[in-house]
């Protein structure tokens, strides 16, 4: 089914929020998945897998020694985002991720941050995938990137439904009291 980028952004943000992520991290995940889908990658599908095994509890499994930040247990929305923040603050240093999981989500986070902040992340090995033993990420400054023209995005309806169901957990059930306070309430509209 065809969906808009804005729908992906907000549905994925809410789904991430419902899994226990904070608002800022859920927004980053929404932006990451939107970026992936605009690149033709199956970001929504990857997100459903990540949310299935969501673990959003601090503390972060991060060690910093000399010029390297090492992630011993990688959760893209937790250690991944924190490590990227750290690398941007320390552009001459590097991140090492041992036992990478949900690599596509991490790629989305990197891609979205590149787009926002005019940065380029470099990874070793270049063609890393989920399950790679260890990857290293470094940073270099680049010129502003041009916005790509919007593409039509199609999502598997089953995946989309799953995300919508998850997003729905962020909504509060309606009550008669809350209904009475909304716009248009309490007046006859046949005037």
């Amino acid at each position: 089914m065809q969906v808009s980028a804005n729908e992906i952004l907000h549905t994925c943000r809410k789904a991430a929020l419902a899994s226990g992520l904070t608002h800022d991290r859920a927004t980053d995940i929404g932006e990451a998945i939107t970026w992936l889908e605009q690149q033709g990658q199956k970001g929504c599908q990857a997100l459903t897998k990540m949310l299935d095994e969501a673990d959003t509890t601090p503390p972060l499994n991060i060690k910093i020694k000399d010029k390297t930040l090492t992630i011993t247990h990688h959760r893209p929305a937790m250690e991944g985002i924190a490590a990227i923040d750290w690398l941007i603050a320390n552009p001459n240093k590097s991140i090492k991720i041992k036992k990478l999981t949900h690599g596509l989500i991490l790629a989305g986070i990197l891609g979205a941050r590149e787009k926002q902040a005019n940065l380029t992340f470099q990874t070793k090995p270049k063609n890393w995938q989920s399950g790679a033993e260890t990857i290293e990420i470094t940073l270099k400054k680049t010129n502003p990137k041009k916005n790509q023209p919007q593409k039509t995005i199609n999502i598997d309806p089953k995946i989309w439904k799953k995300l919508l169901t998850q997003a729905q957990k962020t909504y509060v059930p309606s009550s008669e009291k809350s209904r009475k306070s909304g716009a248009g309430a309490g007046l006859t509209d046949n005037d």
Binding site: T22, D24, P58, I62, D85
Partner: peptide, 18 residues
């Protein structure tokens, strides 16, 4: 201390910092 380091120990503050 850099904000990045602060947020490693206090990830819940990232929304308000931003």
């Amino acid at each position: 201390t850099s904000i990045a380091e602060l947020l490693i120990t206090h990830p819940d503050l990232r929304y308000m910092v931003r």
